[in-house]
Design a protein around this nucleic acid. Sequence first.
DNA 1: TATCAACGGTTGATGTATCAACCCGCGAGG
DNA 2: CCTCGCGGGTTGATACATCAACCGTTGATA
Lengths: 148, 148
Amino acid sequence: MTATADVSAAWQAYQRMRLQLNGRINRELSRSTGLSEADFDILFLLEQSQEGTMRSIALRCGLEWEKSRLSHQLRRMAQRGLITKAAGAVIELTDRGREQIAAARACHEAAVRRYFGDVLTPDQLATLTAISDRVVSRLTQDREHSGQ
Amino acid sequence: MTATADVSAAWQAYQRMRLQLNGRINRELSRSTGLSEADFDILFLLEQSQEGTMRSIALRCGLEWEKSRLSHQLRRMAQRGLITKAAGAVIELTDRGREQIAAARACHEAAVRRYFGDVLTPDQLATLTAISDRVVSRLTQDREHSGQ
DNA sequence: TATCAACGGTTGATGTATCAACCCGCGAGG
DNA sequence: CCTCGCGGGTTGATACATCAACCGTTGATA
């Protein structure tokens, strides 16, 4: 039986890492490219797909976002000229969007490596992957609590 | 040298856990107590301290929040009657706030245990703590990039 | 003493997240 | 053929996060 103190220590340490790590990466991304994490995630998925087009529903499944969240975000990104909305709920990457995600990807990868990949051992990385998979599978398992 | 693929796999798994785990816990907290994560964090700190009072600056240091964020949040919480603002930037827990944080703490602890503590081995918890400390210390080390 | 810089705190503007309500097209069952 | 429900998408309201600009006090220095 795991002691409460150990769980609590791990939780607190994890919270600290979560807040600071993602804060730092997002700040660097925003400062050097003007893109938010939300922008980045969407553009990244779009760039992955050939032709740079995806249906809304595919984005939603890939990101596991709520539909209203995606709708609001796509509207703002279309206003900024990063994407365009075509018929049939098809979202298309613009040239401007393509430039930005290319630059942002480099910045993001560098930050992830600098603050995460480079400071952890292969063992730690493997354990973190296992931990994450375990927690996610637990969450998926009792989806009934989720309300979503 | 750690392979790029391993870093990337660990990063993606971690991101999934981060998004889903915190999303679930916050949703349960909000549904069953009406408190957001921000509310919870502040009330938790206030409850810790004897008398349920703290100076703004102490809250800011404890939470590592930006000053404007704290100011906005305290204003909203005062409007909802969870706290009161006294002279000298002193924040005081109200009776209503005390009730809510007590209920919320139980709910939060149960959720952390259910989705996190109960599904990980002592070894995994210890490794996660080590990972978190390592990453946080790396972040603290080159604070110059932070902009904050 | 006068000034200035630093710091704690507030405010307003903007972007982001979530919930609820709504619109619409479509297929199942009457 | 009807209609009813479901799912994809939009919209509006509200809460939260972040940035920049501002206000007051305080302490160091010219």
